[in-house]
């Protein structure tokens, strides 16, 4: 039972982790808490569904298409919305509210285009892998393997490539980065592209893990993802990875009967919020974040 919960937690946690990195990258560079991120994930999931279902493409092709489409969407939105707001030197409140408006538009547009009925990818829900006492469905296996690969790729990108280092430097200190001769406009586009790719991937994986999903499922995912970002120290990409995994594990393990009888599974989402609140109160700079220099 316990090891099954750990595995389930890692599956959910890896989806959160990928999405959290996407949110965190954009926050680090633009100071934007992107409320539309959940709906960008749903967009990616639906594009992939379109390829996988009606167009009969393989899951891999479908996922790549979903990621690419979401990245394009993110770049287009940057030009159409975020750039003008930056030009006006809009502060945190404006950006946050704009992202709420955008979330509404995106979500309803998805509902309009795809209808309210749940969709599912063409994976066999009854095919199950058994490893010791742990059972994993095909979808879960795909999700956890892809997520693990993606996490490694993202971590390597951030640590080893020049572009990755630029993004981290900008998240640390924008003005300093600009002074150091970094092309801020290019780095911003890069951040949006990667954030979009990750949103698409996280959306597809979330769709796989949940088996069936509706076009408005992004919002339910958004709050745990925010919680993961905050838990990891807002703006820190590595922190977001760790925060996502920690949150997924905590949600699942909270239901373990060895833990004070276990929390009723219906309260799993509440566990995420309570952890978020606790983390903020105990360490306002995030669990893995550094204290800010005043």
């Amino acid at each position: 039972m316990f090891s099954q919960l750990v595995v389930n937690g890692l599956v959910t946690g890896s989806v959160y982790a990928i999405a959290a990195v996407g949110v965190s990258l954009v926050y680090g560079i633009l100071r934007l808490v992107n409320f539309a991120y959940g709906d960008m994930m749903a967009f990616g999931a639906l594009v992939a569904y379109g390829c996988n279902g009606p167009l009969h493409q393989s899951m891999v092709v479908a996922a790549l298409a979903g990621m690419a489409a979401t990245a394009l969407l993110a770049l287009a939105l940057d030009v159409a919305l975020w750039k003008p707001l930056r030009a006006r030197r809009a502060g945190f409140m404006s950006l946050f509210l704009a992202s709420i408006g955008l979330a509404l538009v995106l979500r309803q547009a998805l509902l309009l285009a795809a209808g309210p009925q749940p969709e599912a990818y063409r994976v066999d829900p009854y095919r199950v892998f058994v490893i010791g006492s742990v059972r994993l469905s095909e979808a879960q296996t795909i999700a956890v393997a892809t997520a693990a690969a993606a996490i490694v790729v993202v971590a390597l990108f951030l640590a080893r490539t020049t572009a990755g280092r630029v993004l981290r430097a900008m998240a640390d200190d924008r003005t300093l980065a600009a002074v150091a001769g970094i092309d801020v406009a290019r780095a911003t586009r890069l951040a949006w592209a990667i954030s979009g790719l990750l949103a698409g991937l996280a959306g597809v994986l979330a769709g796989l893990v949940e088996y069936s999903f509706t076009p408005d499922f992004g919002f339910q995912l958004l709050l745990p993802v925010f919680a993961a970002v905050v838990l990891g120290g807002i703006g820190s990409a590595y922190g977001a990875l760790a925060g996502g995994l920690a949150l997924g594990l905590a949600e699942e393990l909270s239901t373990w009967s060895g833990f004070a009888g276990g929390v009723d599974p219906v309260y799993k989402p509440v566990v995420a919020f309570v952890l978020l609140a606790l983390a903020l109160l105990l360490r306002p700079q995030g669990l893995f974040g550094r204290a800010r220099v005043a």
Binding site: R88, A98, L102, L104, V105, A109
Partner: peptide
Amino acid sequence: AYLRLIIIGLVILALVV
């Protein structure tokens, strides 16, 4: 009904911008 909420979202965006 979806269109209506899209319009609401667009109004929020327009106001902010």
